[in-house]
Design a protein around this nucleic acid. Sequence first.
DNA 1: CACTGTATGTCAGAATACTGACATGAGTCA
DNA 2: TGACTCATGTCAGTATTCTGACATACAGTG
Lengths: 152, 152
Amino acid sequence: MSQEGVGVDVDTSVGLLLKQASSALRSAMDAALRPLGMSVTHYACLEQLAQRPGLSNSELARATFVSRQSMNVLLQSLEHDGYVTRPSEAPVGKVLPARLTAAGRRELATATVAVRAVERRMLSNLTDQEETAARRILWSLIASLGRSTETP
Amino acid sequence: MSQEGVGVDVDTSVGLLLKQASSALRSAMDAALRPLGMSVTHYACLEQLAQRPGLSNSELARATFVSRQSMNVLLQSLEHDGYVTRPSEAPVGKVLPARLTAAGRRELATATVAVRAVERRMLSNLTDQEETAARRILWSLIASLGRSTETP
DNA sequence: CACTGTATGTCAGAATACTGACATGAGTCA
DNA sequence: TGACTCATGTCAGTATTCTGACATACAGTG
């Protein structure tokens, strides 16, 4: 039909579908987080920090798929708002390990409720089997893309 | 393990996985498109226009998950570069139907080669069965999220 | 016909993320 | 020891996208 030699079929391209799904998710999370005065990236940062305390700026940036610089300004605002602490002096080298404050943990807990609701809505039409398949497939996609992306 | 009452498990959250996959895809496509002097959004716009000629600015924006305003500036630059044409007068109402020029179609064809390569690499570790499952699952996610997102 | 509601295109300002660039510290190797 | 390489944190400028706002055009309703 639409495969007239030019373009990728919009309805069957996994890439386009992935982009649309991600955009939809981002919109939904954004809407859910906005009432809390929080952005998706803020949430992602807090999330990572909760599960892996002591991550550095660069490690955090890689984990959330943004640049070091963006994460840096984000961490500064998070620090200013009292959600995150970083030592003023680097324990070793220049690496500043970041940690959640109690306030940060509290913010995260509130945000998690909203995020979980979105995720639950997103998965509402999937069986457990499909959900498992989704995880495996997404992992596979990430792995395949990551191969030659992070090592140019 | 990491479900200590706060946060969503990074390794099992379909939402996080989806975001990571999408970021990885975006990076890969960006890298593939950069040599052609093209951004991912440019490509997406051209793609939609190729398959559904005569789409308006707003329709295009919805199809590519960006705001009308962003799509407007994008269309203006695309128009300036000679890839897209829009009538100076609206045939009906204020809606300006956009169409690809020959140059636009040519650009798209070139870009498609690069994009298809990325998509192929992304899907390289998936069986046909999994690929089909991926489409169905992503569709389901989009549908579930779309329900109450576009009608707040 | 007039009025309301919805949708569109567009302008302007703000927020966000990115690339480029620099200095600093750690590790490696001759 | 000294030079070299690599990773990090940070500053600055640029680019892209978003939200807010306005005027306009069509459809429905009294």
